[in-house]
């Protein structure tokens, strides 16, 4: 029995297999409409996240399965003081697979060590969010056709941005990938991740200037400065408006650039950009559902 807590638990071959399944689901949705009949997905969301939860639910429904769960800690037994380990054991009696979102880092790992069914990490604090990375990877492959030979810019909150950390880790396994890390100095990528890149000989540059970096980018991954990661409201407000992507800032960008964002956005991408063919963030949402479908099939070992 497998769980998915960290994207690096999947080998590149397994990733390819998931991406191929997702491509096939997109081409032949009917083939998959009854694959999970009689199976139940438990969505345990100890922290509100409407879009990730709806994506998991839609994925399970499109596979013909059922969904049960809760969408905030208040409506779970955690509010009575139940441990994550106990919740995982109890839910194992009701469902076939768990998708868990939790504000505390490492909670889904604790669940996977105690559950008797597969656990999917649907986001744990500022730590990991592997299914978002699956959505990002499918979007990159469908738009760019490759993971090698890419210059990837990450912009915004690179300190707490778990989607950034996971995608960097996943792309680091491919050849000739360069990263451009664009952030205010308060939100730079953690040193330990930079140490890993250096140790692997992967090129990266750091800058605070988005426009200066723009011409060389094949992919621009924008992020939201997340209010819930700050203990200090003033600092949040100051950093929130550092980078706002407007159509003018794309003047010197490549014509085949793709712009990604894990969503939700606040104001960091101007709505005017949505019409630009380079804007791919709504494709990511759809691709996220397909990758969650592929992942559920793999972890439930449904052929």
């Amino acid at each position: 029995m497998r769980s998915l807590i960290d994207i690096l638990e999947l080998s590149t071959e397994e990733l390819d297999e998931l991406l191929n399944t997702a491509d096939d689901i997109i081409e032949n949705p009917q083939k998959y409409a009854h694959k999970c009949e009689g199976k139940k997905l438990a969505t345990l969301f100890f922290e509100p996240s409407t879009r990730t939860r709806l994506s998991f639910e839609a994925a399970m429904y499109e596979l013909g399965g059922h969904v049960l769960g809760f969408s905030e800690a208040k409506s779970s037994s955690a509010s009575k003081g139940e441990s994550v380990a106990d919740t995982a054991k109890v839910v194992s009696c009701y469902a076939d697979i768990i998708a868990m979102r939790h504000p505390k880092e490492g909670a889904p790992l604790v669940a996977s060590l105690n559950a008797s069914i597969p656990v999917i990490n649907a986001g744990d604090g500022g730590h990991n969010h592997p299914t978002q990375t699956l959505a990002d990877l499918l979007t990159i492959r469908r738009k760019k056709g490759r993971f090698n030979n890419l210059t990837v810019g990450f912009c915004g909150d690179l300190k707490f941005g778990r989607t950034v950390h996971s995608l960097i880790a996943a792309l680091s396994r491919y050849k000739n990938v360069n990263f451009v890390l664009i952030s205010p100095k308060e939100l730079v990528l953690p040193q330990y991740i930079k140490d890993i890149l250096t140790a692997k000989g992967i090129g990266f540059t750091e800058t605070a200037d988005l426009q200066e970096a723009m011409p060389e980018l094949d992919i621009l991954y924008m992020t939201r400065v997340q209010q819930e990661r700050f203990f200090n409201e003033e600092e949040y407000l100051r950093l929130r408006d550092t980078y706002i992507l407007t159509p003018e800032k794309l003047d010197n960008a490549k014509s085949d650039l793709i712009i990604l964002h894990p969503l939700p956005r606040v104001n960091e991408i101007s709505v005017a950009i949505d019409k630009d063919p380079r804007a791919c963030y709504f494709d990511q949402v759809l691709n996220g559902k397909y990758m969650r479908m592929a992942l559920i099939l793999k972890l439930l070992e449904v052929k």
Binding site: S83, V84, A85, H102, P103, K104, E105, G106, A107, V110
Partner: peptide, 25 residues
């Protein structure tokens, strides 16, 4: 780490693994 699950679930074992033997991290 104040965001770690071990800060709220104190019956969990505190487990650390060696990630960098050279720097003893």
């Amino acid at each position: 780490n104040p965001r770690c699950i071990t800060t709220t679930e104190q019956e969990l074992e505190q487990i650390f693994t060696l990630s960098d033997p050279e720097k003893r991290v």
